[in-house]
Amino acid sequence: MSGWPPLLVAWIGLLVLLALELGSALLLHLPATASLFGMAQAAIVVIAFMRIRRGSPLMHIFGAAGLFWLIVLLALGNLDPLTRTDLIVQTTGNPR
């Protein structure tokens, strides 16, 4: 992607996505959609402004490594709080 027109398209696209993001959050109240729009915008910035497709394979590897380890942090880090069970003290002769 090079030259002015694609850049302009990307910018307008980003603003449209922002409007959609805002609208969907205010009207639909779905928690996940806003983040999805955010990710889409981030992807456009990375492609159009950071020009990742022009980058060397090395740069792709570095970027991918950052993302990969972020996923590790989020996935393994949330394993404990999502599966933690609070202590339930069993009692004898409990009517339950």
Partner: peptide, 8 residues
């Protein structure tokens, strides 16, 4: 921490 986390 949770037992599942410990085992993993």
């Amino acid at each position: 921490t949770s037992v599942y986390s410990a085992i993993t």
